[in-house]
Design a protein around this nucleic acid. Structure first.
Lengths: 121, 121
DNA sequence: ATTATTGTATTAGGTACTTAATACAGTAGT
DNA sequence: ACTACTGTATTAAGTACCTAATACAATAAT
């Protein structure tokens, strides 16, 4: 596994890895993920650090634990995944919009900015 | 002065206050700001905490210190202020665009999302 | 029943960060 | 020259946070 950015808590970076891969479909819904110990080895990190990340992901329902020893699974609920993805996106868009409006930009100016950036990438 | 959010470092919140007010024109370019001690009293905070915020603002050229005892002034360079504002905005837009693209959205989808949000606010 | 494997809880060490106390230093104004 | 006002440097205390060690608990597999 690649190295982590030491300025950001490892557990947050693990969360991001899982989130991205689940939301973009790389990790298949319903599939089992490795144990905290295996992941700990893979990431070169203590199992509890993995645990901390996975618990957060359970709170947002992206993962579930069947029972105490059956391991963890990626959520099966594709609607949920889609909806989480949409919500995440919406809140980010909303946040940016608020910032730009507070800075004095008008709707059409904002759209122009977006289009400009799209061109240059 | 109003209270600070205790989850976020005070000096960062002070930075934001100044930044916002300078960029949106509330604090006049070229005008003198109170001393770190006065601001400390105003914010209910140690002068060094104010100092820490103001030093950051100097690094981004929004403030300047003439010499050691003349106090601090808001930048006179309106072009600079406008350009900083533009850069800040651009980088935010860029960042959001990257996130949305990583999540699998296409340009036109992103524009639709923006327009939707604009309507509902 | 036993064993191996899972998740979980508790604790402790280390580290980095934030803030404040205090002392220092330079200059404008008188 | 003196005083009062600037910004600045140093240091210390408190706090919160992150990670890892270790022990515990439950169940699936045999």
């Amino acid at each position: 596994m690649d190295k982590f950015d030491s300025n950001i808590p490892i557990y947050l970076q693990i969360i991001d890895i899982f989130k991205a891969n689940i939301l973009n479909g790389e990790y298949q819904p319903g599939s089992k993920i490795p144990s905290v110990r295996e992941l700990g080895v893979k990431f070169g990190v203590n199992p509890n650090t993995v645990q901390r990340a996975l618990v957060e992901l359970e709170r947002s329902k992206l993962l579930r634990t069947e029972n105490r020893t059956a391991g963890r699974y990626i959520s099966d609920d594709q609607d949920l995944i889609a909806s989480l993805k949409k919500n995440e996106v919406k809140s980010k868009v909303k946040h940016l919009l608020k910032e730009l409006k507070d800075a004095g930009f008008k709707d059409n100016e904002i759209l122009e900015l977006m289009k400009d950036e799209m061109k240059s990438s």
